[in-house]
Amino acid sequence: MGQDPAKRLKEFHGKTVAVETCRKQTFIGRCSRFEKDNLIMVDLDHFHGGWDENEETLESAVSFGHWPVIKKVFIAKADITRMDLLVKTPWKGEVRSV
């Protein structure tokens, strides 16, 4: 991943994110925090294959959420190849006057 994901902790903390690793795994769950070498995620689901191979799963999670089948995992920061919020459009783009 070009940018250290820990630098986006403020944006990710406590929110549901999707994470892809170089070990061909994709995780969907809540970002707890970053330690020195690890990302700690809680209440998550795990899928074999990278982000692109799980496009349909990710689309479904955007619409319906994810099953929290794993309580907690530590993911090596160095293994993370992609990480983003599980929303189609960031909130700042969704504001409209009411």
Partner: peptide, 10 residues
């Protein structure tokens, strides 16, 4: 997750 990080208006 739709509510996370949102605010009332959004």
């Amino acid at each position: 997750h739709v509510f996370e990080g949102g605010h009332p208006e959004s």
